[in-house]
Write a protein that binds this DNA or RNA. Structure first.
Lengths: 218, 218
DNA sequence: AAGTGGTCTAGACCACCAG
DNA sequence: TGGTGGTCTAGACCACTTT
């Protein structure tokens, strides 16, 4: 391990020294350092050196939040209702996006309530090969997200946020009228290169706002 | 210009050919190609070649990012128009949220265009004591966010995302109809404990999606 | 003056894909 | 078999900061 000798602020050996230590060319040593710099864990200062940085506190702006804990943190009651559970052969685009080799996909639709008021409709597709026992979980006790991360620790995610007008299904289940726009969050979660799950989350904008804080520790 | 000979799908000259054309080493030519690949405008296929890609249709992020660079990364033109500039005494809630002790607040409203299509309306309040020269900047050359971070490095931020129906002002300036919802991003940026600026960003949802990627380095 | 990162060179070998 | 991208080498020069 290169960096174990020092924490934040530690100056790592120069590129020339690294290349000698590892019997590699300076270009190669530099490239290795480049990768760590790109992750934000090292910072170069020209003519001075390369230093260990505080890991970026905001790994992302929208952390994957646990809606159950989030609601309890507000002192409210969380309840969820499973609207449908099914196993399907991936044919549509959403299902295919997470099944490169498997033949089955689980789909589940859940409504989340805060004090008996619906605040999220969750439509989730799960890779059946990677999470074979998914549908058997008791989703009144554990959220889909919680279970998935316990089975496959999250390593990567991609999130897209849109504003949409509600479909009839959304109007009915979220108890809103046709003039209330919704936030649509599409989230793919990956673990070690495999796409575990694709979730589409709908929030009525009159009851729910996405929030996030960044705190850079410099 | 390297790529003017072909559109999407065009195979650019090999790295060896490029290095000859430009009288540079292959490493240098490769590095130049790397930058374009990183922008998503070129795609390498090992053993086959490097090809012109469709500019990523949607790519923005929730990180505090530079809309100008984001648009040019897509290979598009960015233009901004200042709708209004003013100095005001903080009386309304937005202004007061960032003025604990100062007596003046700058307000600026800007429309951002991508290829002459409006994609963001930016309404920004700036702490006049902390950034006294804000209004004098040439916002056709530097974005408000760029200037602010150059003066006061960002340390903290808070973000709230909502879906809203467009107001008349939004409809007019973003060139959308009353049925097109918008994403509203409210962002407070802080530097060393002081609130520098509060921005309200409106995006037409039919033209713009917020995206974010998480890559945990474990 | 010495050391640093930033950049570039002119080679080289490899695995892979094409015809 | 020849061309491609992927990687690496062992140098080199530069601008800049530090002492």
């Amino acid at each position: 391990m290169i960096l174990n000798n020092g924490g934040v602020g530690y100056k790592i050996p120069s590129e020339t020294e690294l290349s000698v230590s590892f019997s590699a060319s300076r270009m190669t040593a530099r490239k290795a350092v480049d990768e760590i710099v790109n992750k934000g864990l090292l910072k170069r200062i020209p003519s001075v050196g390369t230093f260990v940085e505080e890991p970026p506190a905001q790994s992302s702006l929208l952390e994957i939040k646990n809606i159950s804990k989030e609601i309890s943190a507000r002192g409210h009651r969380h309840k969820m209702t499973v609207l449908s559970k099914m196993t399907l052969i991936p044919n549509d685009s959403v299902a295919q996006s997470l099944s490169s080799f498997n033949s089955k996909v689980f789909k589940i639709v859940i409504i989340h309530f805060e004090n008996d008021i619906p605040i999220q409709l969750e439509e989730r597709y799960v890779n059946a090969d990677l999470v074979p026992n998914f549908l058997e979980q008791d989703f009144s006790k554990i959220t889909a997200n919680e279970y998935l991360s316990s089975v496959h620790p999250l390593t990567d995610a991609e999130i897209v946020i849109e504003a949409i007008m509600p479909t009839n299904i959304l109007k009915h289940n979220l108890e809103i009228d046709e003039k209330t726009p919704c936030i649509k969050v599409s989230r793919s979660t990956m673990s070690n290169g495999y796409t575990i799950s694709h979730a589409i989350l709908y929030y009525p904008s009159n009851r729910y706002k996405l929030t996030s804080s960044i705190h850079l520790t410099r």
